[in-house]
Design a protein around this nucleic acid. Structure first.
Lengths: 333, 333
DNA sequence: GGAACGTCTGGGAGCGTTCACAGACTGAAA
DNA sequence: TTTCAGTCTGTGAACGCTCCCAGACGTTCC
């Protein structure tokens, strides 16, 4: 590989000094139009590309952020929602010439690696994904004072880690109201883990609408996996055989619930209406297709990135962003 | 953020020179046990972490590789297979302290960004994902002489870009043989795009087994999306209403085929047997669950990473790796 | 005419490493 | 004793950039 041109070469080609080239590179004030043009031309001629390492060495900025996936390894990505988020984040960051490094944080070793990475100054900011309540990583990052935002609130840290999220609570209300309007009487729910915002708030929204009808025996907890949807549904059926609707807090778990119902001989939606949440790609695949709540995932991801960049750019504290959800009616309810 | 300790601080704390600390850091020869111990202790005491930028500046190595996703934006990640690959790659690279940057290459702007990134020396290697035949990016990367490997062969570049892949052709044969053994007579297929190895080789394997029976009218082409599975199946039914089996080259497309068949009133597997490919997470979700071919995705990802690291570490050329597939029988066939 | 100010430019210093080299110290061989 | 090879260590010189300061211009205003 032929030696790459440096800022010196550009300066020589343009007949100016390093300082001037640097000023052009960074849009600094006080560069004459003539010098500016000469430098631009020299850059094009030489095919110069700034060396980020050299720059980072003095600016202490890296031009990259790290996305930390906090799910245990086996589950990472099982949820198709990750895809949208990652893709959107990459695009938005790319537009600003910021690159995205992805790290896993499923066990202590992983977390140590993340902390080491951040302490090493290798990233300008951290993007937390699906972080559970009490995750020690959050405290560690906090003490490192690195800009961090979460995609979806971090329970217990809502005021210290800014976030963008869908309105889980209102989304759950939309679904609950819909099921009630459809004339369903005995409505159960399978929630997400109760240490995640989706787990907690979707249950709260459900309870907001059903009030006293949301009794203990109509509530089961899952862990977002399809399998937990299956087993949760089985327990509900056993306890309350005459239920006529179930609101499942994620599409993937709803797919699990659907197979349990089918195996139990219940027709959907005739005997039991099923409502999901996410409007992820599985929602259209299931049989019957899921009536669900659409989360504006792309927008959530965009807002998350926006918050992080704002934080990095040194504006003061930023406020959480909560985006509206929408009911998508298909055939399961 | 308090100023981070540098190699100088460590040297002072250990009572040695920068050079000695550097030697310890890089496992160089010729460090006395005493000095070694002193440095290790000083590193622990000061909480020193090497500054990668400074190091990269002189070594010209970055300690990171970039994964390039070549699908058009809308499709990126739609295929759940990406998840496994990305996750595995992150882990294996992480173990070697190499970080993974993900970039999109769905349009010309993206591709330019990738080239710029690589030309800027920001990555030690490139990991190509799902690159289509004739992708201009490949030529550009080739001319930059950066170590590159592909996950799945790049059609037309098999000899210049090393790769790891599942044995698509033999996998397709396994499915075709199985369908024949089950007594199916009129077996159709929906292929992937014919500029991808999965598209080409799975069709070849299919044809290997069916020979002359694999007639034009029994072949439809999809683009890996669920929608294309639906429409492909519809065209097949129209042309050959009496087909009794279909081998679909991906699970996601198979899911699409399944809904078309259901809408057309065909029972699966009674009237029509459906075979998928991938054994991705959707395979278990469909109704009925898909009989499919399992690709050893994690192993493929691991091998891909291994090849790339070998290439980066400067060993000579490396050989492609092809891993065996396995038939998974569920209910759809 | 000179002071005061805004605009523009060049170049030294420094960011935190690694690398190459020179030199000091050992012990064994001549 | 001298010589030599093998260990071990310290130091100056990069790597390619940004930052900052000093100074050269031009205007404008008193």
């Amino acid at each position: 590989m032929a030696k790459r041109p440096t800022i010196h070469d550009v300066a020589a080609a343009a007949g100016v000094s390093r300082g001037t080239v640097s000023r052009v590179l960074n849009d600094d004030r006080y560069v004459s139009p003539a010098a500016h043009a000469a430098v631009r031309r020299a850059i094009a001629e030489t095919g110069y590309i700034v060396n980020r390492n050299a720059r980072s060495l003095v600016t202490q900025r890296t031009g990259s952020v790290v996305m930390v996936l906090s799910e245990p390894h086996e589950k990472v990505f099982e949820d198709p929602n990750y895809s949208t988020t990652i893709r959107t984040a990459i695009r938005r960051l790319g537009e600003r010439d910021v690159s995205l490094v992805i790290m896993l944080a499923g066990d202590d070793g992983d977390r140590a690696r993340v902390v080491h990475y951040v302490r090493g100054g290798h990233a300008d900011g951290v993007l937390l994904m699906s972080t559970h309540a009490g995750d020690p990583l959050v405290d560690e990052l906090e003490s490192l004072r690195i800009p961090a935002v979460a995609c979806g609130a971090v329970i217990g840290k809502e005021n210290v880690i800014p976030y963008a999220a869908a309105d889980d609570r209102e989304g759950a209300r939309q679904m609950a109201r819909y099921l009630v309007e459809q004339g369903r009487r005995k409505i159960a729910t399978i929630t997400g883990p109760m240490d995640t915002p989706g787990g907690i708030q979707r249950l709260e929204g459900f309870a907001d609408v059903l009030g006293r009808k949301a009794s203990r025996r109509l509530i089961e907890h899952g862990d977002w996996t399809q399998l937990s949807g299956e087993s949760g549904m089985a327990r509900l059926l056993e306890r309350t055989p005459d239920l006529d609707a179930v609101f499942v807090a994620s599409d993937l778990m709803a797919a699990g619930a659907l197979s349990t119902l089918r195996a139990a001989g219940r027709r959907v939606p005739d005997d039991v209406a099923v409502g999901g949440f996410d409007d992820s790609s599985v929602a259209a695949t299931t049989h019957p297709p899921l009536t669900t709540i659409r989360q504006p995932l792309a927008e959530v991801a965009e807002e998350t990135v926006r918050l992080l960049l704002a934080l990095i750019d040194g504006g003061g504290p930023v406020d959480p962003v909560i985006l509206p959800t929408r009911l998508i009616v298909r055939e399961s309810a």
